[in-house]
Design a protein around this nucleic acid. Sequence first.
DNA 1: CAACAACTGACATGAAACTGTCAGGTGTCA
DNA 2: TGACACCTGACAGTTTCATGTCAGTTGTTG
Lengths: 239, 239
Amino acid sequence: MPRRPAESRRTAPPSRTTRLYDIIRILRDGRVHRAEALARRFRVSVRTLYRDMEVLAASGVAIEGTRGRGYRMTAPLTLPPLNLSFEELEALHLGLAVVGEAGDDAMRQAAERLAARIDAALPEDGGQPDGPGGLALRPFGDAAAGTRHVTAVRAAIRSRQKLRMTTEGPARTVRPLKLEYWGRIWLLNCWCETRGDFARERLDAITALTVLPALFVDEPGKSLSDLARSEIGAAGEGG
Amino acid sequence: MPRRPAESRRTAPPSRTTRLYDIIRILRDGRVHRAEALARRFRVSVRTLYRDMEVLAASGVAIEGTRGRGYRMTAPLTLPPLNLSFEELEALHLGLAVVGEAGDDAMRQAAERLAARIDAALPEDGGQPDGPGGLALRPFGDAAAGTRHVTAVRAAIRSRQKLRMTTEGPARTVRPLKLEYWGRIWLLNCWCETRGDFARERLDAITALTVLPALFVDEPGKSLSDLARSEIGAAGEGG
DNA sequence: CAACAACTGACATGAAACTGTCAGGTGTCA
DNA sequence: TGACACCTGACAGTTTCATGTCAGTTGTTG
């Protein structure tokens, strides 16, 4: 059967794809729509309209149908498929983790929901997701535990407040100097008052953290620039 | 023509959808692959392989083909289409704005790039995007300006540090009490020492902000609970 | 400049998808 | 409890899509 030229689509019944997009546009008004009315509007059977709704739902469009009532869209915003570098994924994850800790209730819940859904959308085994469009990558996992303290630590660095922290040993008092980020792991560089030496602590290993009211000032041999010098010395020796 | 039962797919040539997913899996190694080799591997013609690449690219998969060389994937991570509530979009945007301000250089750049691309992916006019899967909604706009001070203000609230701020009048010293979030606008509820009264300031209106070392304690009539009582009183009178 | 490999349109064929019809089941609401 | 409207499987007929073939174009690299 010879294919109709594209311009005849204006008078031909619309393709299924076109109809699906049009259904989305209509539903975006947030109102309830009955399948029979939509079917009539697109001049298809109600069975076809039910098939359409099934396909849209399977494609990830947030549609909900209720017996005795009709269809409505539950999330009117849709991001298209996004290709991310690893850095962008980390930024996305970190940003949602920060909002998940620091935002007000509604914002925190929204951030947590979104992070969970992004996590679910990126399964670890690379398996094919149920619906079309998805791709498999790696999960967010427990990285939120590592970001839990970022906000507090960063603020303490800025306001030069000492920290009392526990990792696996006894609690220690430290002067937080700088944060580093190594792909999913945050490292705190600090002067440890308890041990009298510089230390590097992974934030995800901190089990208890208290921001102390005590402030600190730079002292010779214990500042960020001293840390940098000791690193340069160590790097020089190492080769 | 009777439809083959699903289980016979295991011995039948794979469906196009399966092949497309398999192509993505292969390309994810980051290496260059020639179309002829992929075609041989999937036992299809090279023309079909070229059609597949066109469909994958149109679906948002980050593939690039170079004449004389082959195909490779340029962004190995892909988020599928995500349906977002307005709150989730705000959380996403806020999270990226925070990382864009607070992250280290690589993280900040990644956050800014991603926010820009999300912004671009949600055009204002609600038009149908070029490829399948995407939907149009509203742009991010300039909300980052309003989030610039969130981190500092929140930390000041927690550590009970006074703030010196300028909006459109002269600089004022305030005691930050609580932050509220009203869909893209952050409001700071505070006791204004300069004016001797409670005040509500929009964070995006703050042009200069300094976190003072001075701390404050609750005083009768000037605390968060006093603010709540004054709000209840006003609400009671109003209706 | 030649080799390499991406890239594209047109056509015919067979397979797959879409559609309407039919019959029947199910949850919500007043 | 009845009205309402969602929901689903099976079947047959129609339409669309995927594919291979063919011929030709184009950009990159050494």
